[in-house]
Structures are given as structure tokens and as C-alpha cells.
Design a protein around this nucleic acid. Sequence first.
RNA 1: CGGGGCGUGGCUCAGCCUGGUAGAGCGCCUGGUUCGGGUCCAGGAGGCCGGAGGUUCGAAUCCUCUCGCCCCGACCA
Length: 567
Amino acid sequence: MFWSQLYVPTLRETPAEAEVVSHQLLLRAGYIRQLAAGIYSYLPLAQRSLLKIQQIIREEMEAIGGQEMLLPALNPAEIWKESGRWDVMGDNMFRLKDRFGRELCLGMTHEEVMTSLARGEVRSYKQLPQIWYQIQTKFRDEPRPKSGLLRVRQFLMKDSYSFDLLPAGLDVSYEKHRVAYNKIFERCGLKFIAVEAHSGAMGGSQSHEFMVESNAGEDLVVVCKSAGYGANLEKAVSRPVAPAAADDETARDPEEFSTPDQKTIAELVAFTGVAATGLIKSIVYVGDEKPYLCLLRGDHQLSETKFSSATGAVEVRPAHPAEIQDWFGAAPGSLGPVGVKNMPILADGALEGRHNLIAGANKDDFHLRNVTPGEDFTAVFHDLRQVAEGDTHIETGAPLKIVKTVEIGHIFKLGYKYSESMGLKVSDQDGKEVTVIMGSYGIGVERILCAAIELFHDENGMSMPASIAPFQVVITPANYLDAAVKAAGAQLYKECKALGLDVLLDDRDERPGVKFKDAELIGIPYRITIGKKLPNGIVEVVTRRGRISADVAVSEAAAHVAQLIRG
RNA sequence: CGGGGCGUGGCUCAGCCUGGUAGAGCGCCUGGUUCGGGUCCAGGAGGCCGGAGGUUCGAAUCCUCUCGCCCCGACCA
């Protein structure tokens, strides 16, 4: 490809609307343009890069026996009603009606269509297992699209679905995907981690997310290198930091004391002089319309996900102040477990075995000291708290780190959720009907591009991994009007092509500075500069990442680059 | 949906408070110049100031409504 014939509208200045680096650079480097909030056009550079990503995905999916299909993006309401997700998806689903008033939607994921397809086709256990996948546009009406291509309303997803007769088969399909995903992201040149994840509204038992560490990310992940542990914050478990002071373990009875206007933990700490670890935080949560009193150590936060798991409740919300007044006869800020009989009391494990703590008295402006779990109230202990900075690994005690990440892939063991609700069954060996067990596995294609940019950029622009860069190498003749330089450029271009390199020749009549800046902005990993050393038969091969330059004989330059790429 | 910010040539922005001939830099076009890190010189094109209504002799500027975009939060397979 010749640069003069390629549409690459680079910008000298960063567009004002872009905040995160990948968004700024995608716009500046002429990869994308915005059409509306969360809706983008992909220009030639982005498209080339995305096609390379998709090709890597295809190869690795084929390697585990995945079969590519293409399902409709336009879905009838019926199948979504069957699975129950027509209602569950709420406003996140784009909905429309056809001319006869029939309800349709744009697919935001394809469990329903895949299951519907499979139940019409698969009859026998002999046809299992199957892994079906597609790379297709998904539509989600995000409440707040943001960060360029990171959170959008229309995007490409590789989604695959496995169908197995038995749970052990699902384990195999799941493991195949886990391995394939590792290969895909490695081949895309990313630094990533696989972490345990919460299955959320997808249902199912086991789930891993593939995450790239980045400040532009929205997910918090807990990692411990030495223990080899990684989990989404929603799911992560830890050993809490020790209480600031040892408990007084003598047997004492709760004793009320006045705490005028002291409502928050911080205020109580200042007022009593007792560290937050010596306080009990009481939070009232409603799960499926039933109230629960949740107790945490003063310095801990409740995890809604864990509350949901502990209670089995699907719909979860904090209690309204009026409800709390009604149930406790006191306002939030003075609540506590002592004497509570009208709702279950759940306590976080960090309170187990503690003595003589401070808790609310269920009387405005009063608290109790000397409250001891198990003696002054009974609670069921669960892991309810969110992992906090400073916590350590639950087994090894090694330090945990909380990092911000971008989710690029997610694999789920779905179990029977969709096959059950939609009736996907096969005959087993004995001629008996058996419900098929499913898995579902997703990759955000554009997010790989974004993550690569977030990971690899500098003040001059992107520094794309060679495997997914729009071009592998750019030839930059410093002065294209110089006949010898121009001829060398043409020759090198031919040689690169012959070696199978994806090469771009910058044939524009621009100043060298402009060409260097542009090449670095769009992130081409290798550059061959033809300039003043040409009379000596020398050109420069420059590695974008680190701007490492090597003088190479013209005749060897193409091979040298091929070596760098393959090496 | 709550809070905040912003809409003025392709891009970045000034002008608005205090109403009176729409500006700059970059980019683009033409000619010349230069050629290893966004050359320099000269000339030129391009904007109903997001939209509608109102106040006024007169509105980019003041008022009302509306649309769009961005950020924080809520939400989130």
C-alpha cells in the first residue's frame, strides 16, 4: 500500500472530546471517527487492525474445533421472552417493531439465538460436543457510552457457545476456551491476566475474565502475584488487616452512651477515639423485598454481590431511610444488632471472635460499647465485605493489589439456564432425553485494539504490537524527490512484499519530519528510513517501541525487518 | 436518570460578562522555497456562530425552550 493512496486523516491536535489515551490516539491517528455517542466509523487503519485481530481469533477458535457461523443481529422478541431476558435486559436492549407491529430487538448477545438454532438441529448425543461461534456486531443501549471504543453501543464481539452432554464435557469445552483465549491475547501482544469472575445475569457456575491493566478501565480486580491469585473485586476474598488494637476480652455487658450527631464511622472514630476496626458498621439491605441487617467491621465495605450470594436474593438494594425508621425505630447512623429480632442478621467473617466492640443502640444519638458477637446477639457469618487495600491473600497472607482493568474477554459455564428454559435436549445412549449443558464465551474485538493502545503508547503516539498493527513496516524515504532514494524505496517495497510483509510505502512529497511523526502516531512497529546514508548502501531500521535504530545494508533491510517481526 | 462542562470554518480555540462589519493558529487550495523530526514566503477558499422562539432599531453575545457531545455518579451482559 502506498501512503498517498491510503486515507489516514491524522490530526496535529488532540480532539477536545477525547479523555482517555486510546480514544485520543484513535482519533488523532485517523483510525476512527464518531457518528454519535457510542457509535463509531472505522477508517482504513482501524479496519485493518480489527481484521488482523479477528483473524487471530478465528485461527485459535478453529484450533479448538470451533465452527464459525453468522447469526442474525435482528432478533424476534419470542426467543428472548422464552429465556426470560426480554424483561431482564431492560433499557439496555434496543427494541423495535416491524410494519405489522411485531416486536423485535437488536441482539446484545446470542445465547437465545444459538440455543434456538441448536434445539432445532441437534438430536443425538452423538452430535455432541459442538463449539459454535461467530464474530458479529452487538448492540447495547448503554446508559453512558464513554472512553472512545471502550464502552460503546455497537461493537464487534466474538461469541462462542459450547454444547455438551455432561458437565465433564462442559469442563473440557471451558478449558479449551481458556487455553484458546490465552493464546489469542498473547498473539495480540497484550499483557493480561485471567481472573475469577462473578457470573452475574448470565447465570452459571464458573467464570473467568481476561483483563488488561489500565487506568482507562472500569473494573477493579484483586491480584496476588506470589500466590497466583486474581479475582474480580466483586468476587475476591481476602484476609483483612488486623484490628488496630487488641480487643479487651473480659466479659462485659453492653453499655449505652450518648453520641450526639455522630452518624458516620469517621465521626464516631473522632468522637470515641476508638479505631474503625473496633466499630461495627450496621447496614440494612433489602434482598428480594426482605430486609437483612448486615454487619461489617467499621473499616470495611459491603459487597452487594456477596450479599446477593449469601442471601440468594436476585434483586438487591439498600433500605430506604423510612423503612429503617420503621423497622428499627432509629435513623441510619445509630443502628446496631443488639435486640434485633425482626430480620436476619448477617455478619462478615472479620467480626467473628471479636469482643467488646462499639455498635449503634437503635436509638437516635446513642451507641453501645462492649458489644460481643455471639454473646450479645447472634448472627450468621458470611464473607460479605469487599476486599480492601492492605488485605492479604486468604491462604498465604501475601499482599494483595487492587488494579483497574479493561475486560477483553469473559468465559462462562452457563449450565442448563438456556437449554432448560428453551428446551434444548438430545437423546442419550439409552434413548432418554437429556438437557444439554452449555457454555458461553465472549471477546470484545475493539477492546483488544484499545487495550493495546492503552498498554503501548508514548508521547509520539501508538506503538502497536506487530501482529495487530495496521501495517507491520513503513518505508520512509526522507526525500521522495531524490531519484535514488525513490528507487531504493520502490525496491525495498518489492522485497518486503516478496517476504510476505505487510508494508506501507510513504510516497508522499512531505518533509521527513512530517512522515516520521505520522508513522509514529499511527503506531507502525518498524520503519525503514532511506536517507543520507543511502550513497553508502545503508538504510536505517527503526523499532517504534523505544525508537531503537540500526544501520543495515539496503539489500538486507527487508530480511532484517522480517527477522525482527518473526523473532 | 441526578450533578457538572461544552457547542463559533476540517482541528484547537478567542470573541459573549459590557449587543453594533465574525477572528487567530493549524489544516486545505495555488505559486515559489526547503528536504533527517510537524520548513519558510506570498496569495486564496471555507462559518446562516447546534436548532427554534423571544427581547431589541440591531443578537454569536441577553432571555426561554430544545437538540447534541463530553465528564462524574447511578446503572451495566
